[in-house]
Amino acid sequence: MTEEEILAEFRDAKALLEGHFILSSGLRSPRYLQCARVLMNPARAGRLATALAAKLPDSVRDSIDVVVSPAMGGVIIGQEMGRTLGRDAMFLERPDGVFHFRRGFALEPGAKVLMVEDVVTTGLSSREAIAAVEEAGGEVIAEAALVDRSGGNADLGVPFTPLIRLDVPTYEPDALPPELDAIPAIKPGSRAA
């Protein structure tokens, strides 16, 4: 898929939003990609996962034992990546604020893991999820995401392959431009705090 075809998928799903958004990181942004909307259509989710899997280096794709994603945002794309790659897909949860496996999910010792996210902005959730996989005995060999909004600055500690990179400005809450400060902020993501 070309970048324009990928953006068309987001536009068609009404998943490219404009306004004043509070991101999971606490940063503010004038644009938001609502991946849940773009992934609500299984055919579209499958197309995006196929395109993302095709971007992975062969050496990574051939080494994956299991796909893991952090809940909530990564669950759907993680499942679709598992289907595309022919691997099991499981997810991490953080009911107590720290990621860990639940629902009977467990890794074989030394399992080679592909971490899959919907959007990476600062990389904090990814790093926390990677640490949880390591604590559970797995090895994250790479990460893939639908969108990299970090400007290429997210250091995840593993090779990172996004489907698309978007340069969307982000701001600290106390350093908003006047046009953004004039708009009420909304928090469309899944993390409450």
Score class of each variant (00 low, 15 high):
4 E>T: 15
6 I>L: 06
8 A>D: 14
8 A>F: 04
12 D>T: 08
13 A>M: 10
14 K>V: 02
15 A>C: 06
15 A>W: 03
19 G>R: 03
21 F>N: 01
24 S>H: 09
28 R>A: 10
30 P>G: 04
37 R>Y: 14
38 V>R: 06
38 V>L: 12
39 L>T: 05
40 M>V: 02
42 P>R: 08
43 A>Q: 15
45 A>E: 04
46 G>V: 05
46 G>I: 08
47 R>A: 13
48 L>R: 08
49 A>Q: 04
49 A>G: 06
51 A>R: 07
57 P>H: 12
58 D>A: 15
61 R>K: 15
62 D>L: 03
64 I>T: 03
68 V>W: 00
69 S>I: 02
71 A>P: 01
71 A>N: 05
73 G>C: 08
74 G>V: 00
75 V>T: 03
80 E>Y: 13
80 E>V: 01
83 R>V: 12
84 T>G: 00
84 T>P: 00
85 L>R: 03
85 L>H: 02
86 G>N: 09
86 G>S: 01
87 R>E: 07
87 R>M: 07
91 F>D: 04
91 F>G: 01
94 R>E: 11
94 R>G: 01
95 P>F: 12
95 P>Y: 12
96 D>A: 14
98 V>Q: 11
100 H>I: 01
100 H>Y: 07
104 G>H: 07
105 F>Y: 15
106 A>T: 13
113 V>H: 07
114 L>S: 08
119 V>D: 01
123 G>D: 03
123 G>V: 06
123 G>Y: 00
124 L>M: 12
128 E>H: 13
130 I>T: 10
133 V>R: 05
134 E>M: 06
135 E>F: 00
136 A>V: 08
136 A>W: 04
137 G>V: 09
137 G>F: 11
138 G>I: 09
139 E>N: 13
139 E>M: 08
140 V>Y: 02
141 I>H: 02
143 E>R: 02
144 A>S: 09
145 A>P: 00
146 L>I: 04
149 R>Q: 10
149 R>M: 08
150 S>K: 04
151 G>C: 05
151 G>Q: 03
153 N>C: 04
153 N>L: 14
155 D>P: 00
155 D>M: 08
157 G>W: 02
157 G>V: 10
157 G>F: 02
157 G>I: 07
158 V>K: 05
159 P>G: 11
161 T>G: 04
163 L>T: 04
163 L>M: 09
163 L>A: 07
164 I>W: 08
164 I>P: 00
165 R>P: 00
166 L>H: 09
166 L>K: 09
171 Y>Q: 03
173 P>V: 10
174 D>L: 10
174 D>E: 15
174 D>V: 09
175 A>F: 11
175 A>G: 02
176 L>S: 08
177 P>K: 12
177 P>C: 14
178 P>K: 14
180 L>T: 07
180 L>Y: 11
181 D>M: 11
181 D>G: 14
182 A>Q: 11
182 A>M: 05
182 A>W: 07
183 I>H: 11
185 A>G: 12
186 I>C: 12
186 I>V: 15
188 P>K: 05
191 R>S: 14
192 A>F: 13
192 A>Q: 11
193 A>Y: 15
193 A>D: 14
